[in-house]
């Protein structure tokens, strides 16, 4: 089936500007934030106890999973393909965590979310939301974790610590794998199920 725009197809559907969100896009971004917020929350419930038990090692062990916190942005960008989708997705996810799930980190999460969302979105934005290969996702994870590392390092006083480079290495690796490559796996699995057919990603596949 070719998707050549017919005269009766509204122009909005075929040539949508990449800076305008539809309500459907916004709700999708919120749903991503809600679901990942919930899953993180469920994980953190299990995690907090463990990290207290592990003491200093727990603090480091947390870095291994850091990439998981980046997932929302690349997934939202890949599905909606609209400017700022990643940043907004991360901010909404953090709002949901703080306001509705009562995260103890407090409002600093908003700032961290905006920074890491910007990092995650940047590689896609530079390619004008048209390139979604493994490289873009990996770079997304790398920049997302790199950006937020600078903020976290400042906030948690990692600068000047002996462990500084170890932390950086773990976080960047986690960012690439869990926050980048895993996002591609999830996006493609979602595309196969058909639930995102009616978003920009579906239009791109049908084109």
């Amino acid at each position: 089936m070719s998707a050549a725009p017919s005269t009766t197809t509204p122009a909005a559907a075929s040539a949508r500007p990449i800076h305008r969100f539809t309500l459907k896009d916004l709700v999708l971004i919120v749903v991503l934030g809600v679901v990942f917020g919930f899953l993180y929350w469920a994980l953190v419930q299990a995690w907090t106890g463990l990290s207290i038990l592990l003491g200093p090692a727990g603090d480091l062990a947390q870095h291994v999973l850091l990439g998981g916190w980046l997932l929302v942005a690349p997934i939202a960008v890949a599905i909606v393909r609209t400017r700022f989708a990643g940043v907004i997705a991360e901010i909404l996810a953090s709002v949901i965590e703080v306001v509705f799930l009562g995260s103890a980190v407090g409002p600093m999460l908003f700032v961290a979310a905006a920074i890491q969302g910007a990092g995650s979105e940047l590689p896609f934005a530079l390619r004008r939301y048209s390139s979604f290969g493994w490289g873009s996702y990996a770079l997304s994870g790398l920049l997302g974790s790199g950006f937020v590392f600078i903020f976290s390092a400042f906030r948690s006083g990692w600068f000047g610590q002996d462990l500084f480079f170890l932390r950086l290495g773990i976080q960047l690796a986690s960012g690439v794998i869990l926050g980048g490559l895993l996002a591609k796996v999830i996006v493609e699995a979602l595309a196969k199920t058909g639930v995102v057919d009616n978003y920009a990603i579906g239009r791109a596949l049908n084109a």
Binding site: S51, I52, G55, P56, G58, D59, L60, S156, G157, G160, Q161, D162, L163
Partner: peptide, 11 residues
């Protein structure tokens, strides 16, 4: 506590 211990030990 985690932050306190890590900083105390690794700075």
């Amino acid at each position: 506590l985690g932050i306190l211990v890590v900083n105390a030990l690794s700075r």
